[in-house]
Design a protein around this nucleic acid. Structure first.
Lengths: 331, 331
DNA sequence: AACTCCTTTGCTACCGGTAGCAAACTCCGA
DNA sequence: TCGGAGTTTGCTACCGGTAGCAAAGGAGTT
């Protein structure tokens, strides 16, 4: 396999120095049209294009952003990744997808990221803890970190997320106006971020409405199955007379599992016997079979904000952005 | 922000040459325990770890694999990406996720990949065509390419995929044995790969069973909505007496949309009035509400095969691997 | 023609590693 | 005590670019 052409080879072919070749490929560089043409022609013939690795080494800019993901069960991740890659690529940045699931050593992955000189690191998942990210080996020179779509538990690491307080206030207002008075909430994996987040605000706003107690259901993962199981356990243990009238699930995927099981195994009509709402607005929830009432995060705004921070077009700080309620038939 | 420490600085601190420092970090290099300890101590103090960018430039090995994805609508992509990143990371390879949707110029993305010297490029999507990938600018030195989970339409580019012929033969056998005789097939986006793939084999095997005609439904995308729409168009135009009795959809996400709509809007019982089967075995299809009969691709085997080819542990060639039928209630 | 001033080109030094040769150092046996 | 083999260390050259200075070239003025 022949090697790729280098600037030096192109220079020889064009009869100029390699620096002139570089200039022909550098926008705004000082070079006459005549030499640029000569160079471009020779480059074309030799199939030359600059080696970005060498450029990165010299400039200390890689144009690569690492995205750490620790939870691939939620299909909502996919459209976000799509949008994120698209937005980053529009700025000339590539996305390095790093899997931080249970099988991997977080600190190790971070050190690796460090060694690769990424321009930035985006944490996009559920369970990044301070003890891993605060590791002292991640010293000076570590790329700037951002937390996407979650609160940040790490001091100094900004979070760009949906305004959970606003979201839950809108949701509870909506449910209250619809007449629901016996709220339930289903959590997924019990991480700190979860506990402090949506459930907290949900309970708070109900309290303000004068509804003091929120029934809590626990799924142990974020998956349809786990949602199904949790609701099955609840409904089979609770006579219909004392059941909640509306169940909010921490995300749509739990909600879909819960809804399907409530209908199918317990004959519940949704929303008449049990209203169900979710969070995220995944595509499938919109399907007529579900008609899931949910809340849409401001995905584009969050991504745009984070990318602007990365390219330096915006001050780096924690930002919460308003999403919007998506009322459908399930509540 | 202070810069990262380099081998030279560690060398000064440890009182050795920078090459000794490098050797301390190179497994199997010739170095005494005494100097290695000295170096590691100094490195620890300065928080040094080797710069992989510089290493890549010198060795011409980046340990980065680009994955081109052009279709983020199918949730099946997510578990595959999870497994792929995990398997690659286990070999010390990182995954660069490149979005090749309609907004991007494929050739441009490939040239960019070329400039970054990826160790390999994996095409994981629906619509990579020969005219883009055969571009002559992707000349010698371009990283080896692989097509994952699809046929390859590109000569010289091996495909690692599920054995579609076997899969469809198993599926048709199963459906035939269950007594179905009026088969339908719903395609997604009409790309070449699709046309030649599952639908083709499906029709073929029915023909062998003596069933000559397969009704074709067309969804224009791979999404639940598109599946819903296609089945809506079909069912409202076709009296129940002349409808198909089993509808195979090109993938699960189409099948779920179709099933939900058939049930909800047309009162069809599944599978009594209309059996529905899909392909991929996505998580949601397993939920009791659906019980979707489907076919599971040998995802792990495919990924493992491709990774072994990348690391040179296996001959590079097109491989098809057997998956297995997942019978549930929907057929 | 001589002198500016500005543009273009070439050059050295550098980014932070790797490869492989040569010198220096051990260690051992004769 | 010395020779020689094997090990360890240092060195030069290189990977393919970038940065920024210095020399060369060209146009305009007097």
């Amino acid at each position: 396999m022949r090697k790729r052409a280098t600037a030096k080879e192109v220079a020889e072919a064009a009869g100029v120095s390699k620096w002139t070749v570089i200039r022909a490929f550098t926008p705004g560089a000082s070079i006459t049209d005549a030499s640029r043409q000569k160079v471009l022609q020779a480059a074309e013939a030799l199939n030359y294009s600059p080696n970005l690795l060498a450029r990165s080494l010299a400039t200390n800019i890689t144009h690569q952003v690492a995205v750490f993901v620790d939870d691939f069960a939620n299909p909502h991740k996919l459209p976000v990744l799509e949008m994120l890659t698209e937005r980053l690529q529009a700025e000339g940045l590539l996305t390095v997808l790093i899997n931080i699931n249970r099988h991997f050593d977080h600190v190790h992955a971070l050190i690796n990221a460090d060694q690769r000189q990424f321009d930035a690191v985006i944490l996009f998942g559920t369970a990044f803890r301070e003890e891993t990210l605060g590791d002292r080996r991640l010293g000076p020179g570590f790329p700037p970190m951002f937390v996407l779509a979650r609160d940040s538990q790490i001091p100094g690491v900004p979070a760009i997320a949906c305004d959970a307080e606003l979201a839950l206030s809108q949701m509870v207002d909506y449910l209250f106006d619809k007449g629901y008075r016996r709220p339930g909430f289903m959590t997924g994996a019990r991480t700190l971020s979860t506990a402090l987040g949506r459930r907290h605000h949900y309970a708070n706003f109900w309290r303000r409405k004068g509804v003091g107690s929120v029934v809590e259901l626990n799924a142990d993962r974020y998956s349809a199955d786990a949602g199904a199981e949790a609701v099955r356990a609840y409904l089979s243990a609770t006579p219909s007379s004392s059941r909640v009238d509306v169940l909010m699930c921490e995300n749509d995927i739990l909600a879909l599992g819960a809804m399907a099981t409530a209908r199918r195994e317990f004959g519940c009509r949704v929303p008449e016997d049990l209203a169900v709402v979710g969070f995220d607005n995944i595509e499938l929830g919109a399907a007529p079979a579900y008609g899931l009432t949910t809340y849409e995060q401001p995905t584009y705004d969050m991504i745009n904000t984070i990318v602007e921070m990365i390219i330096g077009a915006r001050a780096v700080e924690t930002v919460t952005l308003p999403g919007h309620l998506v009322p459908r038939l399930s509540a």
